[in-house]
Write a protein that binds this DNA or RNA. Structure first.
Lengths: 149, 149
DNA sequence: CAGGCTATGTCAGAATACTGACATGAGTCA
DNA sequence: TGACTCATGTCAGTATTCTGACATAGCCTG
């Protein structure tokens, strides 16, 4: 409808394109996870636990980019539904190491396959050189944003 | 704490790195916008209107990657606070073209400068070749994710 | 012209994530 | 040892966004 770009063109702003790509990825993941009854944070938590068993609530929160309060309510739900177990008492400090149950692992396997297909689709149009460029560039951008805060 | 990577390494997953970069960008933008009393969606809406005056609620929603319901409540708040105006009646169809008021424009100018400094920081570590690579790669990824839905 | 299709604005309720706050355990340092 | 700092788990309340639903306007096709 309206077409005028006034000064800055959104299509040349790296920040905007980053947000757009991330939004497209989120939508695509939600589309494949919804039939499985899982949200993205849901899946992220299980995937993190599969790759790094024994992570604490706070560590999971950092890995999934949410607050530890948010991860806590999620963990309680996952625990209640039998996907995750945590010891009643902390082996050291206050951190409770969480682990997948067999049921959680099984649930994750289905979701993981669906998510990998999304990632494959995202990589589909890229050469392998572009893929490694993308990895390097994204890491650099993240570091630049975090370093001087 | 836990260090074991089991099978897949998160640091080599493009999807994870994309989410990480986008999360870092969001945090950095929130940090500079918070002192101005603005949220990211807030800012996105004003910036879109500055660059494309007359966008409708639905168009703004698509541009800011939220639902039109979410954008609607935001627009109503912006209208109430005198940053944006919309005609009482639609000139055609049901779409109400929104425009910045002088006050909205002024508020945006301060925020825009702050956000540009964040984007500059993000680009800081990249060569100009990497920057154009990043633009191309992000566009390709977004298109791949959207094409086959 | 009538019917179907799509897009839009808007309201209401539900889901999700966040901020604030408190208590506890571990490490540090005088 | 005692005070301080930091990280963690957790509860409560708030804020933000989403899903569902409805009515209306324009387009198009038979």
């Amino acid at each position: 409808m309206s077409q005028r770009g006034d000064g800055v063109d959104l299509e040349t702003s790296l920040g905007y394109l980053l947000k757009e790509a991330s939004s497209a990825l989120r939508a695509a993941m939600e589309d494949v996870l919804r039939p499985l009854g899982m949200s993205i944070t849901h899946y992220s938590c299980l995937e993190l636990l599969a790759q790094r068993p024994g992570l604490s609530n706070s560590e999971l929160a950092r890995g999934a980019f949410v607050t530890r309060q948010t991860m806590n309510v999620l963990l309680q739900a996952l625990e209640r539904d039998g996907y995750v177990t945590r010891p009643a008492q902390a082996p050291a400090g206050k951190a409770l190491p969480a682990r997948l149950t067999p049921r959680g692992r099984q649930h994750l396997d289905v979701a993981s396959k669906a998510v990998r297909s999304v990632e494959a689709r995202m990589l589909g149009g890229l050469t392998s050189a572009e893929q490694s460029d993308a990895l390097r560039i994204l890491r650099t951008m993240t570091r630049s944003l975090r370093d001087d805060d």
